[in-house]
Amino acid sequence: MPGRLERPGALQFTAYVALAAFVLWSFQGAGWSFSALVSGGPAMADFLSRAWPPSLERLPQLSKALVETFQMALAGTIIGIIVSLPLAVLAARGLTRQTPISRVFYTSSRLLIALFRTVPDLVWALVFVISVGLGPFAGTLAIAVDTIGFCGRFFAESMEDVEKGPSEALTAAGAGKFDTIFCAVVPAAMPSFITTSLFALEKATRSSVVLGLVGAGGIGIELKVAMDFFDYQLAMTIILMIFVLVLLVERLGTIARGRILEGSSR
């Protein structure tokens, strides 16, 4: 009868111990404290009691800011999707002809997408606030760049993963690379494009709230001011409004995904 568990080798055992130590070290560095968690409970309760009931005093102004937040998210996502499509074509492995120039484009587009993806959107917002000034335009640009990083990567991967048969058929019929990509690869990758784009919109809606904290437009700045002035009832109103907006976008995204993916042919 074989044992239920295999006895780890010396190297494997050392790796387990090192991993456990690394996790503990991270918790220590993160300032994890159960006592602080327990003692923070009453403060949280105090915040909630002071935040309830939400204040409806500035509802019209807050609604306007919320709409602006969504507008930033939508505009930024659309720009990001449009720009990321050609970048993804260049960044997809094996899609373009293997020439020295195409390799340069491939590497550059991959690096650009990686840069846009790895630098957080809040940092992009700070950069754009400096370059184009305070307001929703800076936020929109930050969301667009973040969307390029997100969609560029997933669009490229989905194009790499499509079945090669239709592309081969069009190549055999004498079609050029450009036609083959847009006739065979893009339609096959479309379900993945739609899913990724809707996730990007959901992500952008969440991000656009935070971007306001650094002055890049939207409702975020209202939340910051309310918290700074200890106006917790107003802060609660804003938090609830954000919750409804994000939830609504996620629900609509889910419904749209289902509808579009079942949709009619071209």
């Binding site: 048969g165 239709p166 058929a169 069009l170 055999a172 065979a184 379900p191 042919s265 071209r266």
Partner: peptide
């Protein structure tokens, strides 16, 4: 060229 797996582009008419 006609292929064994037909190689039509899916999702289009």
């Amino acid at each position: 060229f006609v292929f064994q797996k037909h190689n039509l582009v899916p999702r289009v008419s």
